[in-house]
Structures are given as C-alpha cells and as structure tokens.
Simulated scan of single mutants.
Amino acid sequence: MTPIRVAWAAATGPRRREVADALLGDLVPTAEISRVCPRCGGDHGAPLLTGTDALASATYVRDGMNRVVGVVVAVMERRGLVGFGIDAQAGESADPSGVLGVGTLRDWVRIEAAAKAEGRGLRADLARVTPSENGWTAAWDGADIVRGRDLDGPTGVLLSAAWRSA
C-alpha cells in the first residue's frame, strides 16, 4: 500500500491556509501549490500540487465551539489514483450522529474524507461506510467505491484518509 505522509500544526483564523501550504511544502519541497475551486474558479479549495506525482489534501480541525484550532495535511503518490482526501475532527467536536444521520464522529470523519476523494464534497447523499480487511470503503449510489483508512494524528483528533482509483 502506498504510504500516506501526514503533517499537522496549530493554526487559527485566516492563517490556516498559509500554515497548510507551509506544511505541504515541507512534505513535498519540489511541488508548486495552488488551489482552484471547482464551483466558482476561485483560489481556494483542495490543494493542487504540480511538479510532483503526488496528490494532496488539507483539513482544518475545529474544537467544540467550531473554532479552527489546527491544520492537518497529507500527501499520497498518485500511482493510478484520481482522488485523495482527508478529514480530521477533534474528539470533543459536536457529534453529528443525531443531526446528519451518521453513527459516530468516526463515521463522519470517514465520510468527509471519502467525499473529498470522490470530488463531490458533501453536496450529495452521504456514503455508506463499510469496514474492510485493510481499512474501510465508502460508496454512493451509482458511484465508484472509495477506499480509506484511519490514520494517527494529533492527540485527541480523529483522522481518516480516502482515495479513489481511475
């Protein structure tokens, strides 16, 4: 299995994207980092790496008051992949199970990572997450299966990564 490299740092407010880019630059020093929103074309959204054969993802960790307190980034070699995403939530974050119809905060972290890897964000029906031998899989009706696994991250933070093959 292709390794996933992860980095994180404390960050708040508008500096969070600068921190994410600095962390990505440390992980892949040869890459140029940009962002293009697939909906509006603005310079925000998922990080895109050029000058390397890696995919990147970033997420912002929120506390129980929904304030950003940290940044987590990850990179994975492309090797036939067309999508990659991560999500992280502080263990004390609000549990979405009653609000969004998912079982646990861990399920939510997996679904959000899978949605990023699928490229659809959370604008579609939530995925079904199923444990597998080496992690988990997620699927939407009529969509390709996204594979994923839980990762070690900052203390007290749930972290998952997901990827989609061509």
Rank of each mutant, 00 (worst) to 15 (best):
A139I: 09
V75E: 01
V72H: 09
S97V: 08
R123T: 12
L105W: 13
P29H: 02
A143D: 12
V71D: 08
R106T: 05
V82H: 02
G103A: 04
A7Y: 03
A56Y: 14
D53C: 02
V99N: 11
L105F: 11
L126G: 04
G91S: 11
G13Y: 06
P47W: 04
A46Y: 11
G51Q: 06
Y60P: 07
W108H: 05
G119C: 00
V69G: 02
L49P: 15
G101P: 14
G13I: 01
A161Y: 13
P3Q: 05
D53Q: 01
P47I: 01
R16W: 00
I33L: 09
E112C: 13
M76Y: 06
A9E: 00
G45H: 12
S132W: 11
R39C: 08
G64W: 10
R128I: 14
G156F: 14
I111E: 01
L151Y: 14
E92C: 10
G121S: 10
K116M: 06
V71F: 09
R35E: 03
E112L: 13
M1F: 10
L151K: 04
A162L: 10
P3T: 10
R128Q: 06
P131M: 07
V61N: 09
S97W: 13
G135L: 05
T104E: 13
V19Q: 03
G41I: 07
E92F: 13
V73M: 05
R5H: 15
E112W: 11
V109S: 14
G80D: 01
L159I: 12
P14M: 04
T50E: 03
G121T: 07
V82Q: 02
D21A: 04
G142K: 07
R39A: 04
A143W: 11
R62K: 11
A94F: 12
D21W: 02
G103P: 13
I4H: 11
A94K: 06
D53E: 13
G135I: 11
A90H: 13
A162Q: 05
V75L: 01
G42Y: 14
D125I: 02
L23C: 01
V68A: 02
L159H: 03
A88W: 09
A161H: 12
G156L: 06
A114E: 01
D87F: 00
G135M: 07
A94V: 10
A7F: 04
R35A: 08
A162T: 07
